[in-house]
């Protein structure tokens, strides 16, 4: 079973901090405009602190749970802190594979791979927290495996 790159915790923590900051600013603005300064001055900061802490803890837990594995005939993923989700995506079902790098991912120096199927629910599966070279390798490997598996009946 492969684990993600440990730096992915920083990525998720950064995303959580960003979200917390946005919410805190919203609370600050709402406090000024809607409630006319009647809520305590420290509220936005408290909101930020709670969300940021929750986000950082969640990032750490998420990293501990995340696993993926390239098996003989399928890619297997295990993830989720509150709801634990285990997904099996057979190679024959892979429609196409992307590797992608978002802005924060580029800062942290990570990349992700997205696997698409024709399914209606688990239609795209993302493996985050890969080293950039690792992501490209994984993408190529999955591509070759998908071609070899030859989805003769993809839908």
């Amino acid at each position: 079973m492969n684990r993600l790159h440990p730096r992915v915790r920083r990525l998720w923590a950064a995303q959580a901090l960003l979200l917390a900051a946005v919410v805190a600013v919203a609370v600050f603005v709402a406090g000024r405009v809607v409630f006319d300064g009647r809520i305590p001055a420290g509220t936005p900061l408290a909101v930020f602190a709670v969300l940021a802490l929750a986000g950082v803890v969640h990032a750490a837990l998420r990293y501990r749970v995340w696993r993926y594995e390239i098996r003989d005939d399928a890619i297997y993923l295990e993830r989720g802190v509150v709801t634990r989700v285990r997904t099996v995506v057979p190679f024959v079902r892979i429609q196409h594979v992307d590797s992608s790098r978002g802005p924060i991912e580029r800062v942290v120096g990570l990349a992700s791979v997205v696997v698409y199927t024709a399914g209606s629910r688990g239609a795209d599966v993302t493996v985050p927290g890969l080293a950039p070279d690792g992501a490209d390798d994984l993408r190529e490997r999955l591509k070759r495996l998908a071609i070899r598996a030859e989805g003769e009946d993809a839908v």
């Binding site: 709801t83 634990r84 995506v89 057979p90 209606s120 688990g122």
Partner: peptide, 16 residues
């Protein structure tokens, strides 16, 4: 069986 795309096993905190 041959129409299955992906198999998803999910367990919420309560289900666990």
């Amino acid at each position: 069986y041959y129409r299955i795309q992906t198999v998803i096993d999910s367990r919420t905190a309560f289900q666990r």
